[in-house]
């Protein structure tokens, strides 16, 4: 329990640091007023607007106001959407989560068993095929894979829609694209950590006890490799929540990745701040979850 509290406190401090960085960084990206205001606006108009948005105050004041409001879930009003920044962000979050969860679930369901089998049958047909797939998965750029998938399944075969969010059919291609790289990565990680474990004395001893090979591989060995796999899954989840920008852009998926990029182009500070802060909180929570699962799997961690 102490361990959890300690990790939570750590998380809160990290989040505070994130808000400072976000606040400062978004101020470096330029002046929003020149985008908002009519090009014909006078200096007086400009001063009025500056005061209305609170941009005439000192940075420290601006930050403290921002932080105080943020604690209450108020990240100010979006300059572009003319709506509360927090709710703008929250409107885009489900789309990204839907895509991320499906991509993760599919790639975990494929990559973990494939990694285990290719470690057990090292040098076999599946291992060679998996290696080739992993190589293309890790070296081909995501946007290219996305375009190729669209070309084959939407343009040539006409099976699936090219873009947008809707039913299940809209989900297939973006999830496949997003899962492609992580699938390859997760498979490599599973394979290499299983190879390490399968070499261990306790696996040899399990064989010497005459235990069934299936149990040795899928229970005795996999539970030892699971720590690394869960950590990788955590990192994957984070990168899918934060880094789906390319995929979301190609498929016109209305998620947070695209929202952040567009908000940066619009110099829409409140949305950027809301997005980055909430995402940072999500990342911290995912890391905490990974740590807890790790400790649950491997009893040696609990001492630390």
């Amino acid at each position: 329990m102490d361990y959890v509290l300690q990790r939570l406190l750590h998380g809160v401090l990290t989040l505070l640091a994130v808000t400072i960085v976000v606040f400062l960084l978004s101020r470096l990206s330029g002046d929003p007023l020149s985008l908002i205001l009519d090009p014909a606006a006078t200096a007086a108009d400009r001063a009025v607007e500056l005061a209305r948005l609170g941009l005439d105050r000192s940075y420290i004041d601006q930050y403290l106001i921002f932080l105080g409001n943020a604690l209450g879930g108020d990240f100010g009003e979006s300059i572009f959407y003319k709506a509360p920044a927090f709710s703008v962000f929250m409107q885009h979050l489900p789309a990204t989560l839907e895509l991320g969860v499906v991509a993760i679930a599919v790639s975990a369901a494929i990559a973990i068993p494939a990694g285990v089998v290719s470690a057990v049958r090292k040098g076999g047909i599946l291992d060679t095929a998996a290696k080739a797939f992993a190589l293309t998965g890790q070296s081909a750029p995501i946007f290219w894979i996305a375009l190729m998938l669209v070309l084959v399944f939407s343009v040539v075969l006409g099976w699936l829609p090219t873009s947008g969010r809707g039913g299940l059919s809209h989900l297939v291609l973006p999830a496949l694209t997003l899962g492609w790289y992580s699938n390859a990565f997760l498979m490599r990680v599973t394979r290499s950590s299983m190879l390490d474990v399968l070499d261990a004395d306790y696996i040899r001893l399990a064989r010497l006890e005459g235990l069934p090979e299936r149990r040795i591989v899928w229970v005795h060995a996999l539970k030892n490799a699971a720590g690394t796999i869960v950590t990788t899954l955590g990192l994957m989840t984070i990168s899918l929540v934060t880094g789906a920008v390319v995929t979301e852009t190609v498929f016109a998926w209305p998620g947070v990745g695209r929202l952040i990029v567009e908000s940066i182009f619009h110099r829409d500070f409140p949305v950027v701040q809301a997005a980055v802060t909430v995402i940072a909180a999500i990342v911290i929570l995912i890391n905490l979850a990974v740590d807890l699962i790790f400790a649950w799997i491997d009893p040696r961690v609990r001492l630390g």
Partner: peptide, 25 residues
């Protein structure tokens, strides 16, 4: 057939006790 013999008719102890037991069980 060997799996049924190992551990039942004959057993083995390895050299290093530190690595002979599975750390997560």
């Amino acid at each position: 057939q060997m799996s049924a013999i190992r551990g039942r008719s004959m057993a083995m102890i390895l050299q290093d006790p530190m690595s002979s037991l599975n750390p997560v069980f």
